[in-house]
């Protein structure tokens, strides 16, 4: 059924490290990493909101850096390491960021959440104790329409404290409001 399309007929074939596992995948060579993950690898945890780099929804980590998967070619990922939301939890449980997002209500509709989680993870990897302003700066490229970001900041702070080994708990006023 498929007719000859413009450009090369054969699929490109790459291998890369996906969430710590060696992965091979074949795809049309002009596909973005976002499309390869969602369509060719059926990993739909990475979402999309504009496909033009204008919302941050599709953020994930390539070689540890948060990037927009809608603007990265799949072919450019050969031999590299890609981390998606599917790689965050392990058999031991959720990643501390995931735990904190769940606990604080930082995921409302949950659609922008994977992008926030991975961007925040990269932040915490380089800065174990970010200030509120540093968190805002790091997350300035991720749009959320539900939360007003506040629960997200609080979740990042909570996770950061726990990742530093502190026995941190959410502030009462974050959960119940001001008295």
């Amino acid at each position: 059924m498929a007719k000859n399309r413009k450009g090369p007929l054969t699929k490109a074939h790459i291998s890369f490290e996906l969430n710590g596992e060696h992965t091979e995948v074949a795809f049309a060579p002009h596909k973005t990493l976002l499309e390869v993950l969602r369509e060719d690898l059926r990993l739909t945890g990475t979402k999309h909101g504009c496909e033009l780099g204008e919302c941050g929804t599709c953020a994930l980590l390539v070689d540890g850096r948060p990037v927009l998967s809608c603007l990265v070619l799949g072919l450019a990922c050969a031999g590299r390491s890609v981390r998606t939301v599917e790689g965050m939890a392990s058999a031991a449980g959720l990643h501390p960021l995931q735990e904190a997002f769940a606990e604080m209500g930082a995921a409302q509709c949950g659609y922008c959440t994977p992008g926030f989680l991975l961007t925040a993870e990269a932040l915490l990897n380089g800065n174990a104790e970010p200030s509120r302003d540093e968190i805002k700066d790091a997350l300035a490229g991720n749009l959320c329409r539900c939360t007003g970001y506040i629960k997200i900041y609080e979740a990042v702070e909570l996770a950061a404290a726990r990742m530093r080994g502190e026995d941190a708990r959410p502030a009462e006023k974050s959960l119940y409001g001001e008295v």
Binding site: K6, P29, H30, C50, E51, L52
Partner: peptide
């Protein structure tokens, strides 16, 4: 999904 048109990709 907005997609790229087909093209050949070279990596010098």
């Amino acid at each position: 999904m907005l997609r790229l048109p087909a093209f050949e990709y070279l990596q010098p």
